[in-house]
Design a protein around this nucleic acid. Sequence first.
DNA 1: AATGATGGTTCAAATAATGAGCCAAAAAAA
DNA 2: TTTTTTTGGCTCATTATTTGAACCATCATT
Lengths: 258, 258
Amino acid sequence: MSTVGKAISLLELFSIDTPELGLTDIARRSGYDKATTRRLLVSLADHGFIEQDPVARLYRLGPGLTRLARIREARFPFLQTSLPYIRELAVSTAETVHLSEASNGSLLTVYVEHPARANRVNVNLGELLPLHSTASGIAFLAHARELVRRSALAQPLAAFTAHTVTDPALLQAQVEAASGRGYSVSDQGYEDGVASVAAAILGADGHAIGTLAVAAPLVRTDSATSAERGEAVAAAAREITEKLTGERYETVRHRSST
Amino acid sequence: MSTVGKAISLLELFSIDTPELGLTDIARRSGYDKATTRRLLVSLADHGFIEQDPVARLYRLGPGLTRLARIREARFPFLQTSLPYIRELAVSTAETVHLSEASNGSLLTVYVEHPARANRVNVNLGELLPLHSTASGIAFLAHARELVRRSALAQPLAAFTAHTVTDPALLQAQVEAASGRGYSVSDQGYEDGVASVAAAILGADGHAIGTLAVAAPLVRTDSATSAERGEAVAAAAREITEKLTGERYETVRHRSST
DNA sequence: AATGATGGTTCAAATAATGAGCCAAAAAAA
DNA sequence: TTTTTTTGGCTCATTATTTGAACCATCATT
């Protein structure tokens, strides 16, 4: 792997649950030598991507990331635009709502809102979602670039639960259904006992740039509530798309075929 | 420079004004070879730090940054906590308000709010502020770790304008004045015609982790307005500190001496 | 058709990264 | 207290990665 890749992989060891780590810990988790790890950390710290607690000597993600993220958001206000809709959905459905962004062939969870109830679906910020077994993934494929969709369907489809769709033809059907309906549905495709719906948010060229999803425990889901959530998610995704592109949803959507 | 440093320096070429760049452009601005530049970009893109517009082939900052920034913010909600206070200050002062964060011995501008008027002070997101010649820098030094303050005072003090304080003893006096008053004042120390006030935001250990500043054109500033802005900025910084640490400001503040 | 951009690629030479082993200091254990 | 273990940090000969001149393909302009 490139040195740059190694350095970045160190950053990816940090998460909501482990926001601070010691040198030895980082070295062990990354698999790199302690000296190498430290050198990489120092390089990252030089640019504010990592900072070290001066007293505990633990490392954590640095402010340089916040700065660059804001520059990106200024050009591409994906999260900012979506936030109010996520909040509204979280209130109206009282279930977990999460926003994902396409990032080199995967879906990256950029934001999550959990309901204040004991039995809920937990989605971790920063989690990578498989394209074939989540509502988000299917919604994304329904509006992905032809090439992306093909390669996703051609790959071996890992079974996460007994309900995961592993037959490419079935998956294709689900993707088409999502395309027609405006939202996708996943019944325990990724985790047992979880039912999700999702809709794609489109970029100016008509292809999906991310997805908005509602995930609920199966016990609170039947076909009526699922459809209700689906419609709500689809409506929100449509509005976000319009805000981002400044054009009517149908106009944007039909651009993907040209 | 380390390869990692080179890669990150590519990211730093992007700004609010130039959010998208072509390969040749990036190579020219960074000074690296085109092949090298591309290899670095690909490494960065592999981790979502850079993404390439599939049609225009321009590069821009990627969603991976947003994700990591959110992980940091979850642990360290500096920006999020400060935002409402910045907004309020922007309204009440009708001048430029900016928030900076300490990042390896420098102050990094993380957020800026500009007033909607023609004659205003422009501060760029992502800008690095010198410690000795800006209100932010002085406020920071007033609450910095002893070692940091010493080394800042020991360094040669560059003169940005005719008004920049370059005498260490005078600077020391300004820092002490800021410490006593609760906010710092800079009269054209960094740019001609600009008067600023700033206050430090403290971390749990009582040392400054960032600063909040109001910058205004000299023509709209006299000692009364300056004091008014100073008090406002100091009050906001105090409240942000309390929100972040969950303790009374005085308690936090006195911890820095132990 | 020629020109001058652009993005992207190759491979021997040059350079930077690597990691075993060392040190000092701080915790943890005796 | 003293001893042991663990931690962060550092060095330098070996090794693997990075580098960049030269190259190609494509597109827009002349």
